[in-house]
Design a protein around this nucleic acid. Structure first.
Length: 596
RNA sequence: GGAGCCGUAGCUCAGUUGGAUAGAGCGCUGGCCUCCGAAGCCAGAGGUCGUGGGUUCGAAUCCCGCCGGCUUCACCA
């Protein structure tokens, strides 16, 4: 995998590399010249300095070299400063040494102007597109015949953001919705459908009715356990290819897919393929035989199992069951067959699974078993804590769920009410149509951002207020910021200022420099967010950007700027901030309104 | 009991190759709309980074012990 955020990649064309990467490269050359032949240099990078230091970028490399060179770090830093003054003279003002041996540089105004021009001149704001290879991302993966509730949102939203970031960085991404469309519950559903169907209900809301049948089955089976035998028989017939049962299964699957699709549509979430578990049903038997033949799995207590043992024969991990005593296959078997299929079909460089934390053991087992099967692909489990209600865990069977549609309705309702209130205060009126569109953008953004802005691997108790906040570090705050940039640009045009020229930059105020420098970091942060499987890194970046924008806005007059060059520079910065926000939010799957 | 994850401000959480004075949001105190949009900005209070050791020039970050919480431990997915 390429890790652009760690610095200059070997493929980079130095001319298109960021200042930060170019400076790091020059630093590496300087360091190499100080080291004796054959000595391995430490990683030489410049990082952003804290905002209250005079330098823009700093490096701690001199301190790391002190031991090998047996010299005081400040001496080394001083020498590096001289070398950099030579090699990087056009990029930076005189490098300086501070503290225990930090080497700091301040980027020259000419160089900053060049960076601004390169950024604004690039459709993709200079975010590198150097990654290649296929990445498979497995997310959302709801079960057929159940309505999607808020427990599904995290996987869906995080996975979709990873899909967007990955393809923007240049990967060929295959988003695979691994829906639960095969297994025990279908015997139960078929039995329940034949006995208790409310045809009218099914017509109106097929998935709701299927869910009701599923719940009823479990309630009835509690009283009459023999129902499980009847359901098993239906399942057996289905798996043996019985045409009637197969037709019912197809019906359940189709109606669920339709319901999922309309919800994904509402969410703005996409997939490239939806190979459910059923896609692998014929591969399971041969797979188990394969595992046995290769000695990866063995018979144990009538079942087939993969063991993980150390050299003393002690278990290092819980055994992994791939076939039950009765010959039936499991989630584990399907997941291994899925890995095999994806390898053969797509030869990916990485497979990413986005699921809840309780499945950590399962995926460690899947990954380890896959490795024994010869799979060398990088496999990553991106996990998150589970959501629950104040009264306990969600349970479809008990009926205590909050549906995703309800959450979105509530979000849009709140956004709309807030907007109406604000419009009244401003004495404006909007068309119903525009209000609706805004409510959708803000409501959906708030919901998504709540799950993207932090990565709590601890569990969360759901509350509407928690999830639908519109103040502080939220999507509406970022959307508001973007609307504000539009407003400023409109106002400038109205006042007869020239449009941004895409190249003028005047470092009149620290806030001018700070805003520009921050936007230059977008590419690195996107790459890092994708690589670590943490969209929250990008969300944090965007929140910093919005905060810096507001700070700049308060400190730096644009329309009333002292001269035309400065006004132009600030209109450029305004545009850069807007485009960065819009792009970053889009990579998270969040849209922006023109005004709000 | 084994394994995994977590413990940071009153609350919810950021903090990733170990770097200077640990950050944000909510809440709290005070200020800012005749001035480019107050879903905003500025200032302030609030911290033994669970705890004890270790490694290091330097530790919230790495290693070990302990305390507390969550998850999981073969025939569900």
């Amino acid at each position: 995998m390429c890790a652009l955020w760690r610095g200059l990649s070997p493929m980079s064309d130095p001319a298109s590399a960021s200042v930060q990467d170019r400076l790091s490269g020059l630093l590496a050359q300087a360091v190499a010249s100080l080291l004796p032949q054959g000595e391995e240099p430490p990683l030489c990078v410049f990082e952003r300095s804290r905002p209250d230091f005079a330098s823009d970028y700093q490096s701690a490399v001199a301190m790391q070299l002190a031991r090998t060179l047996r010299r005081p770090p400040r001496d080394i830093a001083g020498q590096l400063a001289e070398l950099l003054a030579e090699s990087a003279g056009e990029l930076v003002e005189a490098p300086e040494v501070s503290g225990p041996g930090f080497l700091g540089v301040r980027v020259s105004e000419a160089c900053l102007a060049g960076e601004l021009a390169r950024c604004l001149g690039s459709e993709r704001l200079n975010v590198p597109q150097e990654c290649s290879g296929t990445v498979v991302i497995d997310y959302s993966s709801p079960n057929v015949a159940k309505r999607m509730h808020i427990g599904h949102i995290r996987s869906t939203v995080i996975g979709d953001a990873l899909r967007r970031m990955g393809s923007f960085l240049g990967y060929k991404v295959i988003a695979d919705n691994h829906i639960g469309d095969w297994g025990t519950q279908f015997g139960q559903l078929i039995y329940a459908y034949r006995n208790w169907l409310d045809a009218e209900q099914f017509d109106q809301d097929p998935v709701g009715e299927l869910e009701r049948l599923y719940v009823r089955f479990h309630k009835e089976a509690d009283a009459s356990p023999e129902l499980h035998d009847a359901a098993r028989e239906e399942l057996r017939k289905l798996q043996a290819g019985d045409p009637d049962n197969f037709a019912l299964w197809t019906l359940f699957r189709r109606s669920s897919r339709d319901a999922f699709d309309s919800l994904y549509d509402r969410l703005g979430v996409e997939f490239d393929v939806t190979h459910g578990e059923s896609h692998y049903k014929d591969a399971l038997g041969p797979l188990v035989e394969d595992l046995l033949e290769q000695g990866i799995a063995e018979h144990s207590e009538g079942a087939v199992c993969v063991f993980f043992r150390d050299e003393h024969g002690e278990d290092t991990m819980t055994p992994f069951l791939v076939q039950k005593k009765d010959g039936a296959h499991l989630y584990a078997t399907t997941d291994l067959a899925t890995v095999q299929f994806r390898e053969k079909e797509w030869s990916p460089v990485r497979m990413i699974y986005v699921t809840g934390g309780p499945q950590q053991l399962h995926f460690r087992q899947v990954f380890e078993t896959s490795r024994r099967m010869g799979v060398t692909t990088d496999m990553v489990h991106v996990w998150f804590g589970m959501m629950s209600l104040p009264e306990g865990a969600f349970s479809t069977r008990k009926g205590n769920v909050i549906l995703l549609d309800e959450l979105l309705d509530e979000a849009e309702g709140r956004a709309r009410a807030l907007q109406v209130e604000r419009l009244e205060a401003r004495g404006e009126t909007w068309s119903e149509d525009e209000l609706d569109r805004l409510a959708r953008t803000l409501g959906l953004g708030a919901v998504k951002y709540a799950d993207l802005s932090n990565n709590p691997q601890t569990n969360v108790v759901f509350s509407f207020d928690r999830m639908l906040s519109f103040e502080g570090n939220t999507a509406p705050y970022l959307q508001y910021t973007s609307a504000r940039t539009n407003s400023l640009a409109r106002k400038a045009t109205d006042k007869g200022l020239p449009p941004p020229d895409g190249r003028t930059f005047v470092a009149a105020h620290d806030a001018d420099r700070e805003l520009l420098l921050h936007t230059l970091d977008l590419g690195r942060r996107v790459a890092q967010a994708f690589d670590e499987g943490k969209p929250s890194f990008l969300a944090t970046y965007l929140h910093e950007l919005a905060t810096k924008y507001h700070h700049w806005y308060a400190a730096c007059p644009v329309i009333q700027a002292d001269d035309e060059a400065l006004a132009l520079s600030r209109l450029n910065l305004n545009q850069l901030a807007r485009r960065s926000l819009v792009l970053g939010l889009d990579l998270l799957g969040i849209g922006v309104p023109e005004r709000m």
